[in-house]
Amino acid sequence: MDAKMIVSSRELKGSSNARRMRRDGQIPGVVYGDGGEARPVSLPAHEFEQMLHHHAGEQMMVEIELDGKTESVLLKDVQHDPLSGNVIHVDFLEVALNKKIKVQVPVEPVGEAEGVKSQGGILDHSLYSLDVECLPADILEKIEVDVSALKIGDVMTVKDISIDTSKYTILADEDIVVTSVLAPRLAAETEGEEGAEGAGPEVITEKKEGAE
């Protein structure tokens, strides 16, 4: 575990106090106990965001120092401001290190697909994260999927992901598509359909007229 953070207890609650904390470079947070009790805390914004920057996912085990005591907790939830993207609240959760938990792990394609490199296709990344069950100490930062062998028309699904099943259980249907390689024409048609769905009937009509 390389994620460490010094946090402080906080007594004051409410939105006005939370805003003042953020102006002072602190982020309000809560450490939830296994029994449901909640301990309000504050943590340094810059240090926390730097920690996130060096991890692919936002769910990880963190070693926190609180009131002189060090403990391992799960970073369970990070709330961001919808406009600025800044972190505005953090939830930590006490977990038993010998009990499996469910976490969300990012999925990242690696390599250059053969269908893209030599056939002019387009890689379609469909699934960006997966729910995985594992012990807290085994939490993955990300799941890498090697796409280098994929040709045009090839599809990689959840069942094709290589993972240590003795440690990890993927909580998703094995037939869900993770990534595929589309022919350029099919990719353009797919993008056009998605644009039409979001644009409404008028744009669809204009597209048909243009096609004629």
Rank of each mutant, 00 (worst) to 15 (best):
L135F: 15
N17Q: 13
S148M: 09
Q104F: 03
V31P: 00
G33F: 10
M156S: 06
V181E: 01
G210R: 13
G210L: 14
A18M: 01
S72V: 12
R23L: 07
E174F: 04
E197P: 01
P28E: 05
V41G: 02
R22G: 07
H53F: 09
Q26S: 03
E11R: 06
E47I: 08
G111H: 08
H125G: 10
A149S: 13
V181S: 02
K167V: 06
H89G: 10
Y168T: 03
E37I: 07
G195F: 09
C134P: 03
S166I: 08
D138V: 11
S42V: 05
S16V: 07
A113C: 08
V78L: 08
Q50I: 03
E11K: 11
N98G: 11
V73Y: 01
V177Y: 05
V132R: 00
V41K: 03
D34K: 15
E197H: 10
A211Q: 08
A45Q: 07
T190E: 15
I163N: 03
A172V: 07
M156W: 06
M60Q: 14
E197V: 08
K151Q: 12
M61E: 05
K100L: 00
D81Y: 04
E202K: 14
A18R: 00
A187V: 06
V158N: 09
V158C: 09
L135N: 10
N86A: 12
S42M: 03
S9Y: 10
L182W: 02
A18S: 12
A96V: 05
G85A: 07
D146G: 12
E94M: 14
V78H: 03
H53L: 09
G29R: 06
A196Y: 02
D67C: 01
L127F: 09
E174C: 03
K102N: 02
V177W: 08
G115W: 03
D173N: 13
N98V: 07
L74G: 04
A199S: 15
L140Q: 08
A38Q: 15
P136R: 00
L75F: 14
I176V: 14
I27T: 02
V177S: 06
E47D: 12
S162H: 13
D131A: 06
E47T: 13
G192Y: 01
V110T: 15
E58S: 15
V147A: 07
M21W: 04
G115I: 06
K142F: 01
R20G: 07
E209H: 13
M61K: 11
E189P: 00
L171C: 08
L140D: 03
L150Q: 04
L135R: 06
L97E: 13
R23V: 05
P106N: 12
S9H: 08
Q50E: 12
I170H: 02
I143P: 00
D154K: 02
D146F: 10
H53W: 06
A113Y: 06
Q79I: 14
V155D: 04
G153K: 02
Y32D: 05
K151H: 09
I143G: 04
